[in-house]
Computed example of a mutant assay.
Amino acid sequence: MASSETPLSEYHPPVVELSGTHYEIGVSHGRQLRDQIRKQLDIYKKMFLSVSGMEWPEVRDVAKAYHNTIHKKAYYLLDEMRGIADGMGDGTTVMDIVALNARSEIALGMWQDGCTALGWHLKSNSSRRLKKHGRQILAQNWDWRTEVGQNLALITIKQFSKPQIWMVTEPGIVGKIGFNSSSVGVTLNAIRAKQTHGDLLPIHCICRIALESTSVENAISRIHELGGAASCQTLLIADPSVCRGLEVAPHHITYLGEDKNGLITHTNHLLATKDVGEKAWEDGSQTRLRRVNEICGEIISTFDYDQLADEVTPQLLRQNVFSDRHNAPQAISQSPSDPQKSTETLFNIVMVFEHKEEPKAELIFGRPDQSSGRVYSLPW
């Protein structure tokens, strides 16, 4: 485990492989990541108190509604959360783990973060292999509190009769950002809106369910069947054929499609959804969205159409898009702007999906413009 002084670009995350029944998956998760989960609980206890004025017993009390909803709508994930608590073996309860997984909903849109995501469907007239279906890129800078970065983990999950999952997550949380063996990937951007419903699943459960899907269509169908998410968030979900943006709000989903260049981009404000009580975000969200579109436009103008599918690589996107410091500190590659709310880019992931090819991704920790550390290849 890295010390708090270790630069995040040099962070070496725990790599955890989980399999078995859902309870067994949870127990293994809790045992292998016990120290990181304890630290996460300490971090969120302090954050809830400082930002929303809630002591942890009150947080756990609010989490009861989500406990009941997870039991009704995705009982196997509650089994997994129970296993995480039991695997820790230190008195941590399932309600503590539910609170971690519902932290976005319990905070009621009070927290600020960053995050810039894009999906890019690239085709080539000159390549027979890519002409029909193309190559799908799904990528994100994930921005959150600096102290969380030293606890992040790489997790793979093998479940009976479901695709294998590879994801980057906060220990104790069952679904986050990543992809599966069916070449379905998910990114997540937060939206500051107070509207939330305890009768719907927390967004991290929705991410996990999307990561268990066999296609974008399958993921969207499952999310619809469940009634959407308990809070307002944006997901980009991609497979080799298509990417869709989902602005999810309680009992409502708005879809965003690819533009004429095959692009979907998103930051931290709603583009199409209305009347959900969205709070004004820092102006960095609007600026980052304009900037990511500008840079992608520059890339498009640099190469011939037939070259794009080969030239738009994870390395090019890291260096040209996700390292951008325009409007710093509220840049695509974000640095802390407030010592009391030290938010920065904690990792960058670029996933690549193609028909009849194994899915793959490249991952770095820390800000892309500063990173001199290891590039992780997924699957590992």
Results as ranks from 00 to 15, higher is better:
188 L>T: 04
176 K>R: 07
95 M>N: 10
107 A>P: 00
87 G>N: 05
162 K>C: 07
187 T>W: 10
73 K>F: 03
130 L>P: 01
177 I>V: 15
136 Q>G: 01
144 W>Y: 14
141 N>V: 09
105 E>D: 15
132 K>I: 04
86 D>Y: 01
194 K>G: 15
162 K>I: 02
157 I>P: 01
137 I>Y: 02
78 L>P: 01
143 D>K: 06
148 V>C: 06
83 G>I: 01
74 A>W: 03
132 K>W: 07
134 G>I: 06
83 G>L: 04
107 A>C: 13
127 S>Q: 08
120 W>Y: 11
93 T>F: 12
87 G>M: 07
197 H>A: 13
150 Q>D: 08
77 L>E: 09
181 S>N: 10
110 M>R: 11
197 H>Y: 12
149 G>W: 03
141 N>Y: 07
116 T>K: 11
66 Y>T: 00
91 G>F: 04
108 L>V: 06
164 Q>D: 12
120 W>T: 02
154 L>A: 04
152 L>M: 13
197 H>D: 15
131 K>M: 13
125 N>F: 11
118 L>A: 10
172 G>E: 10
94 V>Y: 04
195 Q>K: 15
114 G>S: 02
142 W>K: 07
101 N>W: 03
140 Q>W: 01
64 K>W: 10
137 I>V: 14
86 D>E: 15
74 A>M: 12
127 S>R: 13
162 K>L: 13
125 N>A: 11
72 K>R: 14
84 I>A: 01
62 V>Q: 12
146 T>K: 14
135 R>F: 04
59 V>E: 00
